[in-house]
């Protein structure tokens, strides 16, 4: 599956202040995580305002008790990205429930020190996803309510 082309990303990110840096980061991320794709959509801020932002939506693989699960996530990028951290959510399907923890709240929002301590260029999306999947391997953020799940064995 081919990655989205750079010039398409540039068009999508025309309102981003550091577009070239953002394009490089996103390209790198979707090459490493094949089940994430870039999507422009309306992001609703807590103050009620809304803005068209890019998100990387899809799944990331997490190894949990010997099986690999495709955990659905959505990583929103502010127009100041990569100088501000992504806003990240677990997105349970209708057959999943969120297990809240100190890292994930009931809305699925993800809280990790990596995000609080975000400093570009030391921080980046790939680094964040590595940390996030490592944390999820210890503290699974979603569980299935369906009995018919079929995990892929390692």
């Amino acid at each position: 599956m081919a990655a989205v082309e750079e010039r398409t990303l540039k068009k999508m990110l025309k309102q981003y202040r550091h577009r070239d840096l953002a394009v490089r980061e996103i390209t790198d991320t979707i090459l490493n995580y094949k089940d994430l794709r870039p999507v422009m959509d309306a992001y609703n801020f807590l103050d009620g305002s809304s803005r068209d932002l890019m998100s990387l939506a899809g799944t990331v693989p997490v190894c949990y008790r010997g099986s690999v699960y495709n955990i659905p996530v959505c990583l929103w990028l502010l127009d100041t990205y990569p100088y501000n951290p992504p806003i990240c959510f677990v997105k349970p399907t209708s057959k999943m429930i969120i297990k809240t923890s100190r890292h994930v709240d009931s809305n699925g929002k993800i809280y990790l020190p990596y995000l609080h301590e975000w400093t570009f260029p030391r921080s980046g999306l790939c680094g964040f996803i590595q940390v996030m999947t490592g944390v999820f391997a210890e503290e699974m953020p979603v569980f299935s309510t369906s009995a018919t799940h079929r995990p892929s064995l390692l």
Partner: peptide, 14 residues
């Protein structure tokens, strides 16, 4: 565009 794997999660915890 990238493809999409089917989301999955471990069975309900107790």
């Amino acid at each position: 565009l990238n493809g999409g794997a089917v989301p999955s999660a471990p069975p309900t915890y107790t």
